[in-house]
Computed example of a mutant assay.
Amino acid sequence: MLGHIRSGTLERYKEAFNDALNGGKGFAIAACDCTVTFVSQFDEACADAIFDQANWDSSKVRDKLRHVIDAHVATVRTAKLSELTSTFETKLNEALSVLPVEALLKGATDDTWPGIRELLQRETETAVFGFSSALSSFEMDEEIKEKGKIMLEGWLSRRQKKKQGGL
């Protein structure tokens, strides 16, 4: 009976969490609000079940529910962060596409390479700022945020080296 309550609560949690994220709610807020709501619903449902069967202890099942919810949140967080990173990589790639660089090269002067470096620097700063802002809804500690920014900057550096090798 308690396992059935846990399973139903978990399914409703996943649906509500997904809806909250798709509705524009910040990740950390959605995770916290949904967790509080659905663990509370689980406790209420167990209280009703325990009333009927006086010897049941729901604490272990509740702990298992919390563990599964936490694991689900971690999985969704990883997927969302990967999606976010990919989105900013794509935006940065588009911003640094051949067109802006090609335009600078067509009117090549002594200022061409400094102009390309300036474009690269500006677009990198814009991407890192946007990425950092997007990470704020995850309420992660600074070390994790910094790793994400370094990963994006590393991608840019690898892209730049690849481009330079082709020029």
Rank of each mutant, 00 (worst) to 15 (best):
A127S: 04
A95L: 03
R158L: 05
Q53V: 14
Q164D: 06
I116P: 02
D52E: 14
S58C: 13
D70M: 06
F42D: 01
T90M: 13
A71V: 01
H67N: 13
A49K: 13
E143W: 02
A54N: 11
L10H: 06
T87V: 10
D57I: 08
A108D: 08
I29Q: 15
A45V: 00
E94Q: 08
D70R: 11
T78V: 07
I144D: 01
S82W: 10
L2G: 10
A31T: 04
K25V: 15
A54K: 14
R62Y: 03
E89I: 06
V76K: 07
S133P: 01
T75Y: 09
V98M: 13
A20L: 07
L167K: 03
V36Q: 08
A79T: 12
F88P: 01
C32I: 05
P100A: 00
R122I: 05
S82G: 15
F88Y: 07
G3N: 14
A127E: 05
N22K: 15
H67Q: 14
E118F: 04
A108S: 11
F51Y: 09
G3Q: 14
Q164C: 00
C46P: 03
G23D: 09
R158S: 00
L21W: 00
L105R: 09
A74C: 00
W56Y: 14
F129M: 01
A16P: 08
N93H: 11
E102H: 12
